[in-house]
Amino acid sequence: MGKLAKSPWLLHYDGSSCNGCDIEVLACTTPVYDIERFGIINTGDPFQADILLITGGINSQSESVVKQIYSQMPNPKVVVAVGICACTGGIFKTCYNIKGGVDTVIPVDVYVPGCAARPQAIIDGVVQALALLEQKRADYAAQRRGVMQEGGIASGADQ
């Protein structure tokens, strides 16, 4: 595993959830479940986060907030939708103010179903996200190398 996947930082946002999954996400960070054993730290700052955990479906008002938080996170980043509402809209899908799952607004990498999602399932989802994060980092690095090599040929011609 690379450096990033050994200590990823987690950001949690409540789309329009009932709190059930939110407190389970928080419960993951506390004793008994203790997600910190994977080197994961819960942060409140999107600019320093690698993994975005979203609970709940998206409504007309949280849409722009979710988009903004996502765009503030540095690349590479992974999104985990926690709970059935975040996956599809769930029991709230027919509500007048629910647009649907998180993937209606931003790309989602890992879906964790459940109402409410159990801490074990959330941790499993996050650990799967770590592998994806590592993959994305490698792709991103390769892409950067490609760009640099193109630049390298140009600088080689200068010599």
Binding site: S16, S62, T94, C95, Y96, N97
Partner: peptide, 14 residues
């Protein structure tokens, strides 16, 4: 407020 407003009271009609 309104970031988590879903409109659950309305579902009672259906």
């Amino acid at each position: 407020i309104g970031f988590v407003h879903r409109g659950l009271e309305k579902l009672v009609e259906t």
